[in-house]
Nucleic acid binder design. Structure first.
Length: 687
DNA sequence: GAGGCCATAAACATGC
DNA sequence: TGCATGTTTATGGCCT
């Protein structure tokens, strides 16, 4: 048989080597599709046979790459597994065997013997032949041996690398440090790749049904692991023990590898709870957290930070779904070690968290891409230094926004660092000035300041419509502003309560939950504010906006004081308004602020319409947003909003402009966009 | 500290 | 009766 020759090569090569490779059973589905004699395609990039052969040869001179090694290991493992199963199959044919005996022999099968045999079975055949306990035992055996061998390989690689480093250093440091760092990075990447492949192989076993684990659970987070785990800032820590030969770095590396392996190992044992494989016993971490992310952190510092822990905050355990109260860090550590030790449950939770992180990363990538497109469309320079994220940390003086800006670090645990380059700003996840307090916050999230002075609701909605629509974040506007916006977006400036509800839920993902709360608030606002007028209409009671009252309820307080101006700027920035918008505002609004007609409360009130058709809207005479500089709309439009209570005005519809120019999403942003751009700033925000 | 604005909660009334 | 709608009151937080 063709495979035999290759198998011979494979068999003979590794056994005498450093013990690497033999039991990492590659049971990939693709390879499983082949017959017993077909060499499995080990790994992703290359023929398993060739890789194994190459690895076998390369390993002799210490030049084997991690990928090759993995291929080789997988090849070996599959051989062993097949051979073992062949033996099992033959023993099954003998009449005296029973299951218990098979299981016992499965556990007892010597790897060395198995390695010397030919592989003849596919994983499917294995599954058919063996009972679950046998498979479990086989897997555990494979994993245990694999872990040991991997550990040795890590050690060897580490020693080699250190030797190289020392050699290079002694050579007069001819190579710049960057080169060393690159080597380290490369090696780290190799290790991670190995871990990934290792996980992949284990998961492939799972995927084939050898053990019970959802493929979706298995594949997603683990594939993302290296990306998530490789934090450039963390890499040096892995190697900072360079002077002390290998110990910290090696430990770190080994821990990582073992962590991953142990994670997979325990994950594979979900179906039955056998004891974990021996290598896990010397897991140095206090809490046994299975993630690479945390384990590296822990291993680098080796002790919990005396004052904080990423899983500890506000006196409670931040482990997902735990929230156990801990008085101090010590108690928390105890709790962590007892309740969240390395076990199946913690591993599963960790996997879920991995998946969460991965989803967030995917979402971040998408949103970043969208932002780039938006910025490109708006002729903004993508490379300019994050116009949104910076304002998230307002100046200490901007007290008005200190509450809502909150932390600018969306990843307080520091475990996952999304790209923060200009190509991928983090702001799309929290655009319109939504601090973390606003995110998923059930409590009050007062956005009065931004609503009042800064952000024109319509323009911001236009800019961030998609975000609000999809992200479960509280819009930075008051209920009154939102209700008004909803009403003004309609052709006839009137909405039923239910339609207002629908607008809220349609426009904001946030309002798709806690409906009782916000609906009550909507009704409360409708009733409370005189600016909302209930009108009995043909289709029942509808609500309209009395712009005059709406403007009246905001007494002009803008005195042009530096504080207010500063707040306004902060709010605009904070409101995720882009640089161009801020610039436009600086051009348009500041002159207004300095304008006596705007700064004087009395004169400001004079701008308000008096309820007559010929009266302009409050902000109408004023240029609002310099950037958009919308075409001036005729004043009667505003007065009509008040009159609409009596007659819904067909003429209004006729005059209604088309899709707003500045609205990225004309389908959802209503026609009054342009007008609101005018009226919001001078009226709502600056009155 | 007072007053205003706002969010939230709740009680109550009314109509379908 | 249950629900939707509408009104009113109370409370607390935040800001000026």
């Amino acid at each position: 048989m063709m495979v035999e020759s290759a198998s011979e090569t494979i068999r003979s090569a590794p056994s005498g080597q450093n013990g690497v490779g033999s039991l990492s059973g590659q049971a990939d589905g693709s390879s499983g599709a082949g017959t017993a004699g077909a060499a499995p395609a080990a790994g992703r990039d290359g023929s398993g046979r060739e890789a194994a052969a190459a690895a076998a040869g390369a390993d002799c001179n210490g030049e084997m790459t991690s990928t090759e090694l993995l291929h080789f290991q997988q090849q070996q493992a599959l051989q062993v597994a097949r051979q073992f199963l062949l033996q099992q199959a033959s023993s099954l044919n003998s009449p005296g065997n029973n299951d218990g005996k098979q299981a016992a022999s499965a556990v007892q099968v010597p790897v060395s013997v198995a390695m010397m045999s030919q592989q003849m079975l596919t994983p499917q055949q294995m599954q058919q032949i063996l009972s679950p306990p046998q498979l479990q035992a086989l897997l555990q055996q494979q994993q245990a041996l694999m872990l040991q061998q991997l550990q040795e390989y890590y050690k060897k690689q580490q020693e080699q690398l250190h030797l190289q480093l020392l050699t290079q250093q002694q050579a007069g440091k001819q190579q710049p440090k960057e080169a060393l760092g690159n080597k380290q990075l490369a090696f780290q990447q190799q290790l991670l790749q190995m871990q990934q492949l290792q996980q992949q192989h284990l998961l492939n076993l799972q995927r084939q049904g050898l053990v019970s684990l959802q493929p979706s659970q298995a594949s997603g987070p683990l594939q993302a692991l290296p990306q998530a785990a490789v934090c450039p800032t963390d890499l040096p820590q892995l190697w900072k023990g360079e002077g002390a030969p290998g110990q910290p770095a090696e430990d770190s590396v080994r821990q990582e590898g073992l962590d991953l392996a142990s994670t997979a190992a325990t994950a594979t044992s979900f179906a039955s709870p056998p004891k974990v494989s021996p290598p896990l016993s010397h897991h140095p971490l206090p809490n046994g957290q299975p993630t690479v992310l945390t384990s590296r952190r822990d291993s680098s510092s080796h002790e919990e930070t005396p004052s904080s822990h990423p899983l500890y905050g506000h006196g409670e355990c931040k482990w997902p779904g735990c929230e156990t109260l801990c008085e101090d860090l010590g108690q928390f550590i105890k709790h962590l070690n007892t309740e969240h030790a390395l076990d199946d449950r913690s591993t599963a939770q960790c996997r879920v968290q991995m998946q969460v992180v991965q989803q967030l990363e995917i979402q971040l990538a998408k949103e970043s891409e969208r932002l780039q497109a938006m910025m490109a469309h708006l002729h903004m320079r993508p490379s300019e230094p994050k116009p949104f994220s910076q304002p998230l940390n307002p100046a200490p003086g901007s007290s008005s926004f200190s509450k809502v800006t909150v932390s600018a670090d969306p990843f307080p645990d520091g475990l996952v660092h999304p790209p923060t380059s200009a190509a991928a700003p983090v702001t799309p996840l929290r655009p319109p000035g939504l601090g973390s307090a606003s995110l998923h916050s059930g409590g009050p999230a007062r956005r009065r300041s931004s609503d009042k002075f800064c952000s024109p609701i319509s323009s911001e909605l236009a800019q961030n419509h998609e975000f609000y629509k999809n992200a479960d974040v509280r819009p930075p506007f008051t209920y009154a502003s939102l209700i008004r916006q909803a009403i003004l977006e309609t052709p006839d400036r009137q909405l039923t309560l239910n339609e207002i509800y629908n607008w809220f839920t349609r426009m904001f993902a946030y309002f798709r939950r806690n409906t009782a709360t916000w609906k009550n608030a909507v009704r409360h606002n409708l009733s409370l504010h005189k600016c909302f007028v209930r009108v009995e209409n043909v289709k029942g009671a509808v609500w309209t906006v009395d712009e005059r009252e709406y403007q009246k309820r905001r007494p002009p307080k803008m005195t042009g004081s530096p504080t207010l101006v500063k707040n306004m700027i902060s709010g605009l920035s904070y409101g995720a308004l882009n640089a161009s918008y801020q610039a436009a505002l600086a051009e348009s609004s500041f002159p207004l602020l300095s304008s006596p007609s705007m700064l004087n409360p009395g004169s400001a009130s004079s701008l308000l319409p008096l309820g007559q058709d010929d009266m302009g809207a409050p902000g109408e005479p004023l240029p609002s947003n310099g950037s958009s500089s919308p075409p001036r709309l005729s004043p009667p439009q505003y007065s009509h909003q008040v009159q609409v209570k009596e007659e819904p005005a067909e003429a209004e519809e006729d005059r209604r402009p088309g899709p707003p120019l500045g609205a990225p999403n004309p389908s959802t942003v209503g026609p009054p966009e342009d007008r609101d751009l005018e009226e919001d700033l001078p009226g709502e925000d600056m009155s």
